[in-house]
Amino acid sequence: MKLLKNLLKIFLLLIVAGFLFIVFANYSIKKDSESFISYSVSDLPKVKTAVVLGTNKSLSNGNPNLYFKYRIGAATELYKSGKIESIIVSGDNSVKGYNEPEQMKLDLIANGIPADKIYEDFAGFRTLDSVVRAKEIFGQNKVIFISQKFHNERAAFLAQKFGIEAFGYNAKDVNKYAGLKTNLREYFAKAKAYLDIWFNVEPKFGGEKIEIK
């Protein structure tokens, strides 16, 4: 009986410790990144390249994914403002028939972005992969990430840890009800970002370097 009580205490302590770690990670990443991300184009520096972080164009029920739509809109606005010269579209292409970078590229072209200014990163399976590959594969040491605020916070945090001077242009967010699942998942994703740094996690794939002219 005493052993059972001790195990229960340890279990509860681990739960509390885990909860406190998640709170710490979220607070720390938000605080450290707040001066580098913005909803205003005028707040951002002029850089060579922006990275659009991937998501699927459509939801599982077939409806349009507003996260995707707003990121494409933000990328278009940023390019046409003259703040960037080229765009990396980084996302998942691990399954046949599922190609986030290609979807993003086609929509950017439809918005008037020249095709030769868009570079596809087909191995952006996670935010960490997209961040590190921007430097290691595409040779960029200073970038603007384009995604929703919660996502840019994490991307900017990871980039700084990997020696990248990073900024974030916040795309319009979806309403709280529609984005409830994503927002809840983000609490754990920020904690995972800290663990990735502590354990020196690397991108799933490397590859040949791609020159952005």
Rank of each mutant, 00 (worst) to 15 (best):
I212G: 06
D121I: 03
I109W: 02
K209L: 09
G124M: 08
A115R: 05
L66Q: 13
V143N: 01
V51K: 06
L4P: 05
T182N: 10
N175M: 03
R185E: 13
F21H: 01
E136C: 04
K181E: 07
A166C: 05
E208A: 09
G207M: 11
V132I: 15
A155I: 06
I197S: 03
I113N: 06
Q148V: 09
Y39C: 02
R154W: 04
S33Y: 06
V201F: 04
K181D: 14
Y119P: 11
K2S: 05
A159R: 07
F145Y: 15
A178C: 02
Y70S: 07
A50R: 00
D92E: 10
V131N: 01
G73K: 04
F36R: 15
F125A: 07
N111P: 03
A189I: 04
I10R: 12
K83M: 08
T76W: 05
T182P: 02
L158E: 11
E186H: 07
F36M: 09
G207T: 07
N63A: 13
R185P: 05
I137R: 01
A17S: 04
I15W: 00
G73P: 00
L158R: 01
L14V: 00
G112L: 01
N99Y: 02
L3G: 00
G168V: 08
E120F: 02
V47D: 06
V132G: 05
I10H: 04
Y39L: 02
S38K: 04
G124E: 12
F36S: 07
Y67N: 14
P64N: 04
S35V: 11
N63T: 14
F138N: 09
Q140N: 15
A178I: 10
